[in-house]
């Protein structure tokens, strides 16, 4: 699985969205991406890439696109 596939899978499974919803997806714009969904998403990303995200990055993870930027900080090329 490529890093991008892993990244997408984390969103698909933790937020229960479909692939066509990913582009432009933002925190708290859909019901499943509430604070609980957010923590599930963080856990899924951490599991997928074997990282521990800093609290500041967890707070900054405001959209599907922003998340990609944050992943780069952990040397994950998408």
């Amino acid at each position: 699985m490529t890093n991008l596939e892993k990244y997408k899978k984390a969103f698909l499974e933790s937020l229960e969205v479909s692939e066509d919803q990913l582009e432009g997806l933002e925190y708290q714009k859909i019901e499943s991406w509430d604070s609980v969904g957010h923590m599930n998403l963080v856990a899924a990303l951490e599991e997928a890439f074997d990282i521990m995200m800093d609290t500041d990055d967890i707070i900054d993870l405001s959209s599907y696109e922003k998340g990609k930027e944050i992943m780069r900080k952990y040397d994950i090329e998408l």
Partner: peptide
């Protein structure tokens, strides 16, 4: 606590 919870939640 926040760090431990990351592992414990799994």
């Amino acid at each position: 606590l926040q760090l431990a919870v990351k592992l414990m939640s799994r």
